[in-house]
Design a protein around this nucleic acid. Structure first.
Length: 440
RNA sequence: GCCUCGGUGGUGUAGUCCGGUCUAGCAUAGGACGCUGUCACCGUCCUGACUCGGGUUCAAAUCCCGACCGAGGCGCCA
């Protein structure tokens, strides 16, 4: 057993990337994890990485105390250490500067052979990586993905707050199905049956009464038996609802939100997108807009015949994605294909004021104008085979001046797949949940 | 949920069709040594694996059955 050192009075003076030639001769303290150790004759090089990047620690056999050198050589990749030493400006070092250590403290040792190395080498399968996910997240590419995610969330919050939307939180433990459709996870709520929310839909609609413009960024849960690269049982949904607007206004809002977000990612995360080798062009606005009927015609030309009312199969979405590898909307879906709260068009009741927001073959968001008349809502519930009684707590709000309103729900992970070029939604989720994975 | 495919050292793979040549190859990792400017360092040597259970056979990593685990596609779903 190797002995661990105590942190004691040591505190970080610099992050790895802050070790620059200008600090030449200064004493610094850095903390991090060992990314690699290389011996070159009488010189030993350690690469230390922290959350910001890497720095090189260099030890000449004759110029360093024996105990420091022995300690360094005993280390294995992934060990967590602290290093106190003198910065030396030198061209041959990776960023023009390195640290000559005076003392090394071993703070966390590596007991087992990790299933992968941080830099280079073959990647282990996603299953093995997810088993020790936080170690996997040290990989530079994973770091890049989640830095981008952080930037995306920040940009989206900035965007809505600046435009006067209020951030809200709604219950994730609910009494009844919100919209029918997706399967819910039942849970035991004291002595009652309850469910995990599949969407904040009904709550956010109600919240336009006091707040007019709201958004929520929070988890939603779906108990679908979906075994694909783009479905999870728990995802983060970005939900917006606004009073006195229609679905066309909401589509415009999405367009601006995406434009703003991509601009921010490009501005703040250029090194991350470069590392991921993923081109992220500024999206061309306005986004293209096809009706459901247009899409059927496009698919017809591609040799796929669908009848009005057919869902777009995975195959047809893939073909659509090839012809349109960009952001676009599919609007005016048949009313019966959409949830009960989606508003039918005034003159054509069989078509709805609805849209799906797409990128290539992947559906990112759906939204629409909402039904604001209680009578119509009850009619729509019945048409969809739902029991209005179960929705009485929702319906009675409509007796107290429910304004016309519209909104959308967007899957954050799917947006992240598009922004980072990942094919598996698990890569953009810190601790993914699917039908076979409940841990870690 | 359905269909298809797979499970070989810590990790990624070759070998499986067509049983014997497998004492299981390669890379990476781990250990030892050498190398005074590496940066996926390099060189030499070493360590380490056929998912589990049953069956067929003179002989099974290889063929058959079952279990467990995983991957992809479709459907469901947003």
């Amino acid at each position: 057993m190797k002995k661990l050192d105590e942190l004691k009075e040591w505190r970080r003076t610099h992050y790895s990337v802050e070790i620059t030639p200008e600090l030449d001769g200064k004493r610094v303290t850095v903390f991090g994890w060992l990314a690699s150790i290389r011996e070159q004759g009488g010189i030993t090089f350690l690469i230390l990485h922290d959350k910001e990047g890497v720095v090189q620690i260099t030890m000449h056999k004759d110029k360093i105390s024996r105990s420091v050198l022995e300690k360094a050589k005993s280390l294995r990749e992934h060990s967590s250490i602290g290093v106190r030493g003198i910065v030396k400006s030198i061209d041959k070092a990776p960023h023009g500067a390195e640290i000559i250590p005076e003392e090394i403290r071993i703070l966390g040792i590596v007991q087992r052979q990790p299933p992968f190395t941080l830099f280079g080498g073959k990647m282990a399968s996603i299953d093995k990586r997810l088993d020790i996910r936080v170690v996997d997240l040290r990989r530079p590419k994973a770091q890049a993905i989640f830095r981008i995610r952080h930037t995306v969330l920040t940009a989206i919050r900035e965007f809505f707050i600046k435009r006067g939307y209020m951030e809200v939180s709604t219950p994730k433990i609910i009494a009844t199905a919100t919209e029918g459709g997706a399967a819910l996870f039942p849970i035991l709520y004291y002595d009652k049956e309850a469910f995990l929310a599949q969407s904040p839909q009904l709550y956010k609609e109600q919240l336009v009464i006091p707040f007019e413009k709201v958004f929520e960024i929070g988890p939603i849960f779906r108990a679908e038996e979906s075994r694909t690269l783009r479905h999870l049982s728990e995802v983060v949904s970005i939900d917006v609802e606004e009073a006195f607007v229609s679905y066309e206004d909401i589509m415009k809002l999405i367009e601006q939100m995406i434009y703003h977000t991509v601009k921010k990612v490009r501005g703040r995360c250029s090194s991350e997108t470069e590392l991921l080798r993923h081109e992220l062009p500024v999206p061309k606005v306005p986004f293209k807009n096809f009706t459901y009927r247009d899409v059927l015609e496009i698919l017809e030309k591609e040799g796929i015949t669908l009848s009005w009312g057919d869902d777009l199969s995975t195959q047809s979405l893939k073909i659509l994605g090839k012809t349109m590898p960009e952001f676009y909307f599919i609007t005016d879906w048949p009313t019966f294909m959409k949830p009960f709260y989606i508003k039918p068009k005034g003159d054509k009741q069989d078509i709805s004021e609805s849209f799906d927001f797409m990128h290539g073959a992947i559906e990112l968001a759906s939204g629409g104008s909402r039904v604001s008349s209680k009578r119509l809502l009850v009619k729509r519930l019945k048409e969809q085979g739902l029991e209005p009684k179960l929705f009485r707590y929702h319906l009675r709000i409509f007796d107290y001046g429910m304004p016309p309103h519209a909104g959308f729900g967007l899957g954050l992970e799917r947006l992240m797949m598009v922004l980072t070029g990942q094919e598996n939604i698990r890569e953009v989720t810190i601790f993914p949940r699917d039908q076979s994975r409940l841990t870690p």
